[in-house]
Design a protein around this nucleic acid. Structure first.
Lengths: 207, 207, 207, 207
DNA sequence: AATGAATGAGCCTTCATTCAT
DNA sequence: GATGAATGAAGGCTCATTCAT
């Protein structure tokens, strides 16, 4: 299973085996029947453990949700940063970010689906503030990277608040459609055109 | 309250007053604490009715959710169609759709928030199939309108599955950000640039 | 059942019938197996209702405990006050209080047992502060009554903090012994000697 | 810590160090949050051991409760017996018992509080019968001692069942009040008056 | 002797829904 | 049409206890 690979990156070692097992099974259940509709019992059945073991590793049900959410976000961010660091300028960076996003979604569709489904539920959870901060941090990082590029002035006319939406909006929109089954062509098939389109859309501000 | 205006369009007449009252209060609760976390009791308290009255007007809790969801979608679609019908060509149509979308979100932020929050929950509900069909229908309608325009060939090179994402992706992305408080400038402030950007992004396929 | 009589005084009317029924059954269970060991299920079985009905009338399990505790205390206090109001001086008052206490314990042994058993659990509960205040109030009332009697000077030499313990200590001690089965003669059999002994014990301060 | 001194008397030696440590920490937790509300985990945290170690020294949770209860009772009884053995007659004995009781409560308020709190819970435990026997035994011992005194006839008119309540009732009542914070003067401050009052109260039977 | 992960029965509580008045 | 007391299935979570290491 692909998901296990991701989880092993976040929770390495043999001692965390059960933890990964629980998380992986919970993930499946969450995307199959929804987070709220998934009971601890279901997770226990799927993971072939005991209720106690689940609560031993994660304090609450929300602990499981948080762990999955944070894992996914972390992994996604790591991959994006790696992609960015190999880019030499704005345009390459944009392409890299979009490619990395699409790759990740295609590689971990379960996690991607979960990320979309959980975003609402997580915003109201206990770690809401923490996650908000981390998200802000990530966006700032991206902003800083952009500002340091040789062709940074290309973006100068684009309102800061709009940038992220213009760059990633269509990509995200397509991923949502793909994950929900509304469209079938693989996201990565459109990676280049989505990147190109995003780049073009920034052109609207060049005069 | 703005929301009442929308509801009056969908459920007109004095006999539906309590219905609107219940729906409006339920809407508030739903976006405040989440759909699943809102109990019938809470809605009763807010709407100052009885449990029985609620069940008299809506068969289930999901009946309330559906009613709200369908109302919002219907209203949004109506407004979009009106905007489209006044447009003479593709470019104008694109502008009209984006303007209409941003206007609606800004006018009914509660409904918009609810729409995003409910989308997942509704997909698993009883009316899932119906709603899916209606959504498909709406997209088809839009597609047909596009095909009938004098400058329809401008889109010919754009893969069908990608079209919606390119046109509405950044707009939707920005609305989400605004509704969640991540950015503050009003969506309509960026209506023109978002439309222009969308138009430009289609340029990527023109060679 | 005697207990019902007490409960009818506190919760009168036909609409509270189920409430009384639940409280009475809960009381039995509480003194039979202890408060913590009694489950809601047991109470439901005994009272022949539904879990929901119990939670409809009392918000928590502790709500039941509180209701019983407060009912008992209120009834006991009422009876004591009635006894006091018919007394003309300190000595008569002391006799009246002791008689009233013993009467009450003998008439409502279940409530009395519960009062002793719950005192600890209730002190840590939500209403701890309220109950503490009410208790203080009651003691103050008693103190005021004492101060108004013609022979009030008899007590003048007795430290305030000690008064209650000297007056009611042996009586309470005997009641505990009787309720737990350590002794068998009825408390009221010793009413006069207990009152006399209490009066004599105050003599220790008369020189 | 005072409590350790008591525990060292009951469980002497270096080998029992951990045992004492566990008991002392458990005691604190018990009086802080109640016996039932204290979990083994809490005790483990406080005592800085492992769950296994606790179960190695005490078979059950109740084993800890029993050990504490019996320790306290034993220590209290020992101290009382020592006091009695130095008394020459009834009056001196009464004074000695009351002084000893007040001293002990003041010296080990934690244990005293625990004794009051646990009495109910222990009565329903596994060792209920044993403890009841021991208690009876102790009371008998006291009765025998009383009967052997030169001035034993002073008590002859006092009903047997009443004796303990008259002698110790006010003292116990005051200790409860002090331990719960309702009154502040130290119990030993009132030792003499409480003893004198108890002696006087027996006078009520002298005619 | 010590450790702490794992077990699982059982408890309190919630809440959508029904129905007699 | 309106009311709200009553129902009861089901879920999250606790915690004493065991046992492999």
């Amino acid at each position: 299973m692909q998901n296990i690979a991701l989880l092993e990156r976040i929770y390495p070692g043999r001692r965390a085996e059960l933890k990964r097992q629980i998380l992986n099974c919970a993930l499946q259940q969450f995307i199959q029947q929804g987070i709220e509709s998934t009971t601890i019992e279901m997770i226990r059945d799927a993971a072939e453990t005991s209720v106690g073991a689940i609560y031993h590793h994660f304090k609450h049900k929300e602990g499981i949700v948080s762990a999955l959410y944070i894992s996914a976000l972390k992994d996604q961010a790591t991959q994006r940063m790696q992609a960015l660091q190999q880019s030499q300028n704005l345009k390459h960076g944009l392409y890299a970010v979009i490619h990395s996003y699409l790759d990740w979604v295609e590689q971990y569709p379960d996690f991607a689906r979960f990320l979309y489904a959980a975003s609402y539920s997580v915003q109201q959870g206990i770690h809401a503030e923490t996650l908000k901060q981390e998200n802000l941090q990530r966006n700032l990082q991206l902003g800083q990277w952009l500002a340091l590029q040789p062709d940074a002035e290309y973006m100068i006319a684009v309102p800061v608040e709009l940038r992220l939406s213009l760059m990633i909006g269509p990509t995200e929109s397509y991923c949502r459609a793909w994950l929900s089954g509304r469209v079938s062509p693989l996201p990565t098939d459109y990676a280049n055109v989505l990147a190109q389109a995003a780049w073009q859309s920034l052109n609207a501000f060049q005069m």
